[in-house]
Design a protein around this nucleic acid. Structure first.
Lengths: 147, 147
DNA sequence: TTGGGTGCAAACTATTTGCATTCGA
DNA sequence: TCGAATGCAAATAGTTTGCACCCAA
């Protein structure tokens, strides 16, 4: 019973720049130079990055994208369902390029974040909620530290 | 099956200033004027407050406690087990005066936070984790919005 | 007197805002 | 051309840090 996700999870990531442009257009996002650059970093594989990490990766060669644009673009991607915001670290938001249903393992000593496949967690009982409430998401976060 | 906590949960809260002083001493915290003031706000009942809300409540009459001291004191109380930090809102940390095991309902439209009694949520399956990992906490957060 | 503990002004850092610029129709 | 969308410098807000002060031994 591994907590590692299967390879099939990865198959939705764009393989070429053209794929990425299509992905953005399909999500209703105008594919600008900056957004493509940010998308290339994020959608290369299943990962959790903070805005700061995205900024560093995007400007590795030369300064191409400002800090504000990174923040705004991450927000736009998340609103359109391409990224999932993960709120586990009190000091920053993580953006998860895996948007399928799953949960999280958070190492509170190192700040690392890892996915837990949905089938490895089962929430078998939920409270009855007033009918005017819509459930957006049920997040399970296992907070751990190494001995 | 109500999501409201029972009255017995409330019985641990200090009723007088002297009770509060004892509570702080028992936790190994020197009871200073500022800490007592902050404790009176927090431990009056089961609630979730942000640092900003505590600051406002504490300084309602006149300025008695600085912002930094509120932050630091909340950190000290949490470290000593008198408060629980709740990480659900990307913009701020909530401090929960209910430290018994329970989960949370978060209204993402209004930013309100509500407790869910432990018996109303059941996590029946967890992944096998490497034996060098210690579980600190398993948080379940139900994110909802009103229709 | 002295040293750890305490409180807070100032510094820091993550994030948001307002507006000049750009782009597509 | 023109309105909407975009990108970013500057502002903001939440939090942390470093140091002066205080108090018990």
């Amino acid at each position: 019973m591994s907590i590692i996700l299967t390879m099939s999870e990865l198959e939705k990531f764009p393989k070429t720049r053209a794929d990425l442009v299509v992905m953005l257009r399909n999500a209703g996002i105008t594919p600008t130079h900056q957004r493509i650059k940010i998308g290339e970093v994020l959608f290369s594989r299943e990962q959790h990055l903070s805005a700061e990490q995205v900024l560093a990766a995007v400007n590795q060669e030369d300064d191409e994208v400002s800090k504000a644009t990174v923040y705004n673009t991450l927000g736009v991607f998340a609103e359109h369902g391409l990224l999932r915001e993960v709120i586990v670290d009190p000091s920053k938001v993580f953006y998860d390029s895996n948007v399928s249903k799953h949960h999280h393992l958070f190492y509170s000593d190192t700040g690392e974040l890892e996915d837990i496949a949905d089938e490895n967690i089962e929430v078998s009982k939920l409270p009855n909620l007033p009918s005017d409430l819509q459930i957006e998401e049920v997040d399970v976060i296992i907070r751990v530290h190494r001995n």
